[in-house]
Design a binder for these strands. Structure first.
Lengths: 145, 145
DNA sequence: CACATACCGGACAAATTTGTCCGGTAATAA
DNA sequence: TTATTACCGGACAAATTTGTCCGGTATGTG
C-alpha cells in the first residue's frame, strides 16, 4: 500500500508524537528504530525528509533528538506524511496505470475505484499524528510486534 | 496501488477478453502491447504468468495468440489476477507494515483501514474480466490514452 | 519435410527502492 | 576551548522491480 519508507515514517512519527505528548520527551534515532522495529540508518533518511518538510522537529547536540511540537501534533495529518514521502500516486493515480484517467476518458474500473479512493483520502486527511499517538498511549494501538 | 506488472496484466486481460468476447478473435503480443500501451517483452512475461495460473489461454504457432475462453471470461475476477501477480500484500497486509497486525495487537490505523480494505476486496472479487471487457465494448472504458 | 509464425524460458540489463557507512556540523557541558 | 552527543548529507551497496534479448519449442501451411 505505502512504501517501506512511508511505513517507517508514519510509525516513527506516531512514536515520537506519543513521547512528546505524554512526557514532553525528545527521542533519539536509536530509540525510535528500536521502538518501531525499523533499520536505523534508513529511518534517519526518512526523518530528515520529514524535518525538511516541517512535519517534524529535530534538535542537535546532547539531549537533542526528534520531537513534535504541540502544533505539529494537532495539525500534521497522515495525508501530509504520505504526500511528503510517497507523493500523490496512491492518492490520485489511476488504478490501472493510465496516465490521464478521468471522467473524460476513464479506465474500466474508474468509477468503481473512485469511492474507495475518496474514503482513503478522507481517512488520511482526518487523522492527525496526535490522535494516533493517543491510541498508542491508551493501549489501543501498537507500533511493532 | 498495484505493481506495473499487475497494471499491464489487467489491461491486457481486458483487451484480450474484449476481442475474444466480441469477435472470437485471438490476439498476438504485438497487438496487445500496442492496444494497452505497454512494453512488449515485459508484458509477455506477465501473460506467461497468467497462462501458467490458467487465468488466460495461449495458442502457439501461426494464427496463434492469446484468448479467453467463455468460462474464463465469466469466472476470472480481478482479485484472482491481482493475487496471481502481486500476491496478497495489498489485499491483506497491514497499512503500517506490521508483520502480525490484527485485532489482537492492532496498529493505530487498523480499524480505520479495515472497511476500506474490505471494500477493495469486495470490489476485486465482484468484477470479472468479461464484465470489464463489456465496458470497453460499450465505450464506457478505455485501456490507453 | 521444410518453413514461417508466435508463444516460452532463461539470462541479462536498467531503474528504483531499500538499506549502510562515514565524515561533517551544530549544540551542550565541563 | 575541548570533548561529547546526535542529527545532517552524500556516497555507496544490496535487493527488488521493470524492462530487453535471444534462442528454443510448438503449431499450422504448403
Amino acid at each position: 500500500m505505502f512504501s517501506k519508507a512511508c511505513e517507517y515514517g508514519i510509525r516513527a512519527l506516531i512514536y515520537i508524537g506519543q513521547q512528546s505528548a505524554d512526557f514532553g520527551r525528545r527521542v533519539g534515532l536509536r530509540d525510535i528504530a528500536a521502538e518501531i522495529d525499523s533499520p536505523e540508518a534508513f529511518t534517519a533518511k526518512v526523518l530528515q525528509q520529514l524535518v525538511r518538510q516541517q512535519l517534524l522537529t529535530s534538535v542537535k547536540g546532547p539531549a537533542g533528538g526528534f520531537e513534535l511540537t504541540p502544533e505539529q501534533l494537532r495539525t500534521v495529518t497522515l495525508r501530509q506524511v504520505v504526500l511528503a514521502i510517497d507523493g500523490p500516486g496512491m492518492l490520485q493515480g489511476c488504478a490501472l496505470g493510465l496516465p490521464q484517467c478521468s471522467a473524460k476518458q476513464p479506465c474500466p474500473m474508474h468509477y468503481q475505484f473512485l469511492p474507495i479512493r475518496d474514503q482513503l483520502n478522507e481517512l488520511l486527511r482526518t487523522y492527525t499524528i496526535g490522535e494516533l499517538a493517543g491510541k498508542v498511549h491508551e493501549g489501543l494501538g501498537f507500533l511493532k510486534q
